[in-house]
Amino acid sequence: MTTTAFGRRRSHRPNAVVNMALGLAGIAGLLLVWELVTRTGIIDPRFLPPASEVLVRFASMLRDLQFWREVGETMTSWAIGLAIAVVAGTIAGFAIGSSRFLERATRSTIEFLRPIPSVALIPLAVLLFGTKMQSSLLLIVYASFWQVLIQVIYGTLDVDPVANETARSYRLGRLQRIRHVVWPTTLPYLITGIRLAASVALILAITAELIIGTPGLGKAISDSQSGGDVVGVYAYILATGLIGVLVNLVARLVERRTLAWHTSIRSELAL
């Protein structure tokens, strides 16, 4: 396997470099177009300040403790909300997925509750918690819970009958089958669920701060806006975008690490 993996890596390295270079060129091109359309006055710089100004502001923000406090606030509600959603979604998903009765009994309820946009709960959140972090958490948990739950239910229903019969024929008990068969089968689904939930949770964290005014990056965007600081608005938007990319990168890394055996990933490693 080592030789295959090595051979593969060697033969694909130029490709990876080219991809990286193309990606960077794309970003540079975008920044260049942005700079040009604002400098030449095609777009009024009052609405879209030049890229260079936004980047300079962003760089100075990185040295500002206030910015990092806001990042911390956003990421704290993101992390707590995501954690609650993942734990609750996993437990509920396993319970529902391992019981025919529960699965049928909850299906229509889930199909009704799931499409309710989390933002529709904003008035409720304000009513209950005002501008405290709990408001953000309510929205984040509601939105990301379904992502995890649905994936976990699908995962538990996807257990291979042959694998299950093998486990039964070797007299593995119910708990042992959950641990050695159902859980590993569900894991790829769970991780996909977490990855989706992580993105959704970030969107809802920013949304809550932006609209309700719970402290964090979203509130900073809206504060900059009301202060007429257009450059600041863009710099903060850039920050949220980068956090989104980072969240996704980390999620993919975790996926790769934990699911090295899975078909979707192992084909890239060996064979």
């Binding site: 042959v162 024929s169 070797y170 050695h180 068969v181 055996w261």
Partner: peptide, 29 residues
């Protein structure tokens, strides 16, 4: 009694090493 199934690819657990697959029934016993 032990059963060997036709679909070895589905009967062996891909998330476990060969050794762990062979040991699992003993572990559970």
């Amino acid at each position: 009694m032990a059963v060997v199934f036709q679909e070895y690819g589905r009967s062996l657990f891909p998330w476990m090493s060969v050794e762990a697959n062979v040991e699992l029934p003993l572990k559970s016993a």
